[in-house]
């Protein structure tokens, strides 16, 4: 068991050192949601009226509404970033080093997932601290309750990235992931508009948003910030996380050989 934990610690440390080394990545990860918060939300504030729906007990401004979605955005982009680095690692060969470790391959993938989730969560808290400067603050209890929500949400989105990395052959294909995974997931979710607002324009759009696991992750975060539990969202997040992790383990299974093309 100590060997398993040693690998987990080493992989986490490597990810953390890489992250610290890439300051641009850290700044980009924070600038993106801050721009949305300051520019986009400020513009929409006047245009969008929000009714009082759970977890909100009182009238809420748009920039407060959008914060959980932006926390989700950080997790989503980071999950994809981690997946990108898996593809990069494979092209550069260091993935092979990881996969020749005598530990079970699924555990090595879980280690990568845990490490990248830890970094994502750190970024979410830095973002929330910056949001305070713009007058958006939540209760201390909310910040504490957020942590157990960020863990499954971050793992789920990281697992999606991992599953994608097992089927993406080359770095160049990653632009497709941006267009076909990140953007649809983000825009077809409750990150920017609540479900009832979506329903006003189209019932189909609302249904798509409702089943989008990213919506569920955002709702899990939203409720946690108000110290409320959204069991349905949690269950949906856990279920989709398990499916994607399963797909990732399947994709990296040596017998399936999905990564064999990269080795040729």
């Amino acid at each position: 068991m100590t060997a398993w934990l040693a690998a987990l610690a080493a992989i986490t440390q490597r990810e953390a050192l890489r992250f610290i080394g890439q300051r641009g990545r850290f700044v980009a990860a924070l600038v993106r949601p801050m721009l949305w918060l300051v520019v986009f939300a400020a513009g929409f504030r006047a245009a969008l009226g929000l009714s009082i729906t759970p977890p909100y007990a009182t009238y809420t401004t748009y920039e407060v509404y959008i914060v959980p979605g932006l926390c989700g955005m950080i997790l989503l982009f980071n999950g994809m970033q981690s997946s990108l680095s898996m593809v990069y690692d494979r092209e550069m060969g260091s993935m092979r080093l990881l996969l020749t470790s005598p530990l079970p391959r699924w555990w090595l993938l879980v280690c990568r997932l845990l490490a990248s989730t830890a970094i994502s969560i750190l970024q979410v808290y830095v973002f929330l601290a910056l949001a305070v400067i713009f007058g958006i603050r939540f209760g201390w209890g909310g910040y504490a309750a957020l942590l157990p929500a960020l863990v499954p949400a971050g793992l789920m989105l990281g697992a999606l990235g991992l599953a994608l990395s097992s089927v993406i052959r080359q770095l160049e294909n990653f632009a497709g992931v941006m267009n076909f995974v990140i953007f649809p997931m983000f825009f077809l979710s409750t990150a920017l508009y609540p479900l009832w607002k979506m329903a006003e324009s189209s019932a189909l759009l609302r249904d798509i948003c409702a089943v989008n696991p990213f919506s569920q992750a955002v709702e899990l975060i939203r409720f946690a910030l108000y110290q409320q539990q959204n069991t349905a969202a949690l269950a949906w997040v856990l279920l989709s996380g398990l499916v994607w992790l399963g797909l990732a383990v399947w994709g990296y299974d040596p017998a399936r050989g999905l990564i064999r093309k990269a080795a040729k």
């Binding site: 100590t2 060997a3 040693a6 610690a9 080493a10 992989i11 490597r14 080093l97």
Partner: peptide
């Protein structure tokens, strides 16, 4: 050092 200890840990050595 970091490169080597990363590898050692992947083999359960710490």
């Amino acid at each position: 050092q970091r490169n080597l200890s990363y590898f050692a840990a992947l083999h359960g050595l710490r």
